[in-house]
Design a protein around this nucleic acid. Structure first.
Lengths: 238, 238
DNA sequence: CGGTGGCTGTCGAGAACCTGTCGGACTGCT
DNA sequence: AGCAGTCCGACAGGTTCTCGACAGCCACCG
């Protein structure tokens, strides 16, 4: 299956001075089938941008030496229109970031959730592909999620989900019909470094189920428990 | 879907000596599905005009070397009737510009808001397409906005909106039914370089809602909040 | 020039809503 | 029956959203 209308792998450049973070992002991207390289300094980033020709860049704004804005500037000056998704601390340069989504770029506040970053990257890629970009709709059985309009329907019924519920459901839909463990869900949907080793996931699934099943379902629950492993969304009977 | 009655992509030439600005405009235009090229000097602009045959030109009047007026002059001398939208500093040459907008051209003061620029470009294009140009009316549900007459109606009721309200509403209508984040709205509707890290967007939406809903609406508000994400205009029940 | 009125953005309080923790009930397996 | 794993009600703290009040600004007018 081709993604975003392209045949080759997406090429991603991750720029972050914190190697664990850069690697985390690169790893997840590779797991999605992308080509990913990392840079830990602005200089390296610029060099790699020239050699690697990424389709998209993840750029931390807090860099030693040439900072994120400098890198962006030089990137643009060299004529690359490659879309960028910025990372920034919550309090940090938030104000200076304003104005960055205009050029089609996007930004995310640290600490972020891996799935959310991937979702934004996909969106930015999809949109930068041109005007004829397609809606992204995830479907399993009679459940559908439109990632652009944020509409989630179960059959005819329109559901209202909270942000967390939405993210968990998206993750499960995206991975369906693979079983995801609670740890995996936690690691992807919650911010990295989230402390709560609790039963949040169960809770959110529980709340999700209530909303899904209130929507007129009768048979097996849409989100199934695989005891001892985790959760799946599977077509009924599947 | 054809835009402005044409089948091929609109071809835009952006002339500005400030590369970030030129790229900004080009990027936004590409997102709309246009073909865009940039020039940073008058000479380059003239060369590109000859090769690229743009349908419309965005021209900064403050250029080093051959200035904006010179470029325009030579363009016209070479027989091109391509419509032009000028950019100028606030205090700058506003009076001299006034005389130039006769031929269906237009101008905008820097710093401008991206959406407003795009709106003017669309208008100029439509007009230059000839006498049989079509009105551009945005509609969602019983809400309609005529971009030529600036009339906004909710059902029968004619609304009076302030400029900011109008722009925000237009942006939401144009993007409907996609959810726009507050950052996106801020970035597109406010001038680039706007610092306000506040709740302006929420405020304007609030004021808009009051006007929309005073107009005899009863059910769900037309502008819906997607908590944690942003705002959408969506057909009721949809 | 000073006055008037409309438009915009800031502030802040209150409302609405979301989220994680706790703990008790429940389930399925052995 | 016993146990680990799961489910979910209730609650408190925190976050996000809404909107009234107000002040600066600008355009227009006398």
């Amino acid at each position: 299956m081709t993604q975003y209308g392209r045949v080759e792998k997406v090429r991603l450049l991750v720029v972050d001075d914190d190697p664990p973070i850069a690697d985390l992002v690169a790893t997840v991207a590779r797991y999605e089938g992308w080509d990913a390289v990392t840079a830990n300094t602005g200089e390296e980033a610029l060099r790699l941008a020239g050699e690697f020709h990424p389709d998209i860049v993840v750029l931390d704004l807090m860099l030693p030496g040439v900072d994120g804005f400098g890198v962006l500037d030089r990137l643009r000056r060299s004529g690359t229109m490659v879309p960028v998704v910025f990372l920034t601390a919550r309090d940090g340069v938030a104000d200076r970031v304003a104005g960055l989504t205009r050029g089609g770029d996007d930004y995310l506040v640290k600490p972020f959730a891996v799935e959310e970053l991937m979702a934004r990257l996909r969106t930015v890629l999809r949109r930068s592909a041109g005007p004829n970009f397609q809606r992204s709709v995830l479907r399993v059985g009679d459940l559908s999620m439109d990632e652009d309009t944020h509409e989630v329907r179960h059959g005819e019924k329109l559901l209202t989900l909270t942000p967390t519920e939405y993210e968990v459901l998206r993750f499960l839909l995206r991975k369906s019909p693979t079983v995801m463990t609670k740890a995996q869900i936690l690691d992807h949907v919650w911010e990295y470094g989230f402390g709560g080793r609790s039963n949040v996931v169960e809770l959110v699934v529980s709340r999700l189920r209530r909303k899904l099943d209130d929507a007129g379902d009768t048979g097996a629950p849409l989100i199934q428990t695989v005891r001892g492993f985790g959760y799946v969304i599977r077509q009924a009977g599947g």
